[in-house]
């Protein structure tokens, strides 16, 4: 009896009486896919970042390993630091503040709205979220165009070039418009998890709308706010749609990091340098995620 048990546990817990090897066979294809499509490119990027690889010329045929030169160069490079600064502004303005706050306000006000009004707003907001990037980009180019743009027609300011005059401001407004749906939906779900009786207890104590928000709602959905902030920050940080609208113009004034990397790598042909920046970006993403996980742990 005991002998049998030992044998069974050696054979592993694979249902149907299979053994370890059989179990491994099921996992191998997935592992291969992950290796080919995720790990190899990452390693390749890591390698490229250590070279002076270019798209054409001598370095294209015989790239030299330059060690950490690309990284030290990037960290000291003004263009890179400007792009990073713009990205942080983009994330802060459009995601952490814009989408978060607007998404919450929409969810909060729609709670008590009539059903048809809620359905209408939700549909419109969702539409902005599900439309393909190319379509959205074109819509916003047309909306803010200097000649014949919709906004100029509304404001009676013909010839005003919004994309040229306020590239980052326009991008932030654009991204708030585009991405608020997610925050709105997440907060709608979050708000429905706050027990109405807690809000009513506060109301009976005489709490104003703001006090109810501060004392009951926000503490009740802290975890949701954190999750939402992390997700939309990461998405915005990595968002490439700005390229479809401004291509980083004018003179790189709207080049957020992904756009800057692209411009460096393809038109700029400096693949090694671009790879190094990509890796830095990856590290920033990882740090964001780690910080988030730490905060969540501390809560629990």
């Amino acid at each position: 009896m005991a002998h049998q048990t030992a044998q069974r546990s050696l054979a592993g817990d694979v249902p149907g009486g299979g053994d370890r090897r059989q179990g491994l066979a099921f996992v191998v294809p997935a592992l291969l896919l992950v290796t080919v499509f995720l790990i190899l490119p990452a390693l390749w990027t890591l390698y490229l970042g250590l070279t002076d690889y270019r798209l054409t010329g001598v370095q294209a045929a015989h790239p030299k390993v330059v060690g950490t030169a690309n990284y030290t160069h990037a960290l000291g490079d003004k263009d890179f630091r400007d792009a990073l600064g713009r990205t942080l502004l983009f994330v802060l303005g459009s995601a952490i503040i814009g989408q978060n706050v607007l998404g919450f306000l929409l969810a909060w006000t729609l709670r008590s709205a009539r059903r048809w009004a809620r359905a209408l707003v939700e549909t419109l907001v969702l539409l902005a979220w599900i439309l393909p990037g190319v379509v959205v980009a074109w819509l916003w180019i047309a909306f803010l165009k200097d000649q014949g743009g919709t906004l100029n027609a509304i404001l009676h300011t013909p010839g005003r070039d919004w994309w040229f005059d306020h590239p980052m401001g326009s991008l932030i407004v654009f991204n708030v418009w585009r991405g608020t749906a997610f925050s709105m939906m997440l907060f709608t779900a979050a708000l429905s998890s706050v027990p109405p009786s807690q809000l009513e207890s506060a109301r009976l104590a005489g709490a104003s709308g703001w006090q109810q928000l501060r004392d009951v709602v926000l503490p009740g959905i802290r975890g949701h706010i954190l999750t939402n902030t992390l997700l939309i920050s990461l998405w915005t940080f990595n968002d490439f749609t700005p390229y479809l609208i401004t291509k980083g113009e004018p003179h790189g004034a709207s080049a957020v990091l992904p756009v800057y990397i692209y411009l460096t790598a393809l038109p700029g042909e400096r693949l090694g340098f671009a790879s190094a920046i990509s890796l830095i970006m990856l590290v920033i993403n990882l740090l964001l995620a780690l910080a988030y996980i730490r905060i969540l742990r501390r809560r629990a």
Binding site: P195, S197, Q198, E200, S201, D215, V216, P219, G220
Partner: peptide
């Protein structure tokens, strides 16, 4: 309230 509605 029936569920006491304490602030957690």
């Amino acid at each position: 309230f029936q569920d006491y509605a304490l602030f957690p």
